[in-house]
């Protein structure tokens, strides 16, 4: 075995170990969801089910509030993602293309919401949403989630716009486009992959968020992370249904990620400009 081969083997072993380490909790979650309810809480726990069963899924889906919570999670994440992208694209474009002092200050201040603990923002948000009369709605929660995802979205989009040479827009202008047309018809399609990346991170941030959902929702807008947590009560842990619902809740976001992953790769390989 040559030194190069042995290094490669070692690297593969290391990579495999890391993947197993990261993937094991999720694999264990899925396997637990497929155990019988009594096996799911056995002491000591087992990795593989003694008998395979979908009973936990039935129990989870029959729990009141589960289906509405999926709808709430989806609508909240969609609203938050749309808001983040629609606000981040022009904001980031303006900051990168005009390069003003105020723009530079703005992009730094945009990170303020990430400098403080979320709970410090959450309590005032409760009062604000209540004053606005939108408490316990997906809109209120989506606005709260936008405070998390918008700064990141602006920074991300700024970096994507940075990567687009100004000559591309200048060429478009020479060809008769206005600045707005150049932005909409030339720049935005070029950074489509970047918008997809920004959207997926905004969506993930909202989909997985727990604290604001806890503080800002009550009945009508309760999202699935809260419903999952409700399976652990003072009087017992319904481990089986909890893992089943967590698995179900993971499916859309895994699919979404895989779907946009392809879009991102495609975006990176097309290459509108040869460097």
């Amino acid at each position: 075995m040559t030194p190069r081969t042995s290094t490669r083997t070692l690297l593969w072993a290391l990579l495999t170990s890391i993947v197993v380490l990261y993937a094991f909790p999720f694999a264990y979650l899925i396997l637990t969801s497929l155990k019988l309810p009594t096996d799911a809480i056995a002491v000591p726990p087992t990795v593989l089910p003694k008998a395979w069963s979908l009973e936990n899924y039935g129990t989870a889906l029959a729990t009141p509030g589960v289906i509405p919570s999926f709808i709430n999670s989806t609508s909240t994440a969609v609203i938050s993602t749309v808001l983040s992208v629609l606000l981040a694209v022009p904001a980031a474009y303006g900051i990168t293309r005009y390069g003003t002092v105020s723009g530079r200050i703005f992009i730094m201040l945009a990170l303020v919401t990430r400098m403080v603990p979320p709970v410090a923002i959450g309590v005032p948000l409760v009062t604000l949403m209540s004053t606005a009369g939108i408490t316990d709605t997906p809109t209120a929660l989506a606005l709260a989630h936008t405070t998390i995802s918008l700064p990141l979205s602006i920074w991300l989009m700024a970096s994507f716009f940075e990567a687009v040479p100004p000559s591309l827009e200048e060429a478009a202008v020479v060809d008769g486009c206005t600045r707005l047309q150049a932005l909409v018809r030339i720049v935005v399609p070029v950074v489509g992959g970047g918008i997809a990346v920004t959207a997926i991170f905004a969506f993930l941030a909202s989909w997985n968020e727990f604290l604001f959902a806890l503080l800002l929702t009550a009945v009508r807008a309760q999202t699935t992370p809260i419903v999952i947590a409700n399976f652990q009560t003072q009087y017992g842990l319904q481990w089986g249904p909890m893992t089943a619902l967590a698995t179900l809740y993971s499916v859309p976001v895994v699919l979404f990620t895989l779907l946009l992953q392809r879009r991102i790769v495609a975006g990176m390989t097309l290459g509108a400009v040869k460097g």
């Binding site: 390069g99 002092v101 827009e169 200048e170 202008v173």
Partner: peptide, 12 residues
């Protein structure tokens, strides 16, 4: 991004 080399502001 730091304010250098921005596009000219004469394009519509």
């Amino acid at each position: 991004l730091m304010g250098e080399g921005t596009m000219p502001h004469n394009s519509g």
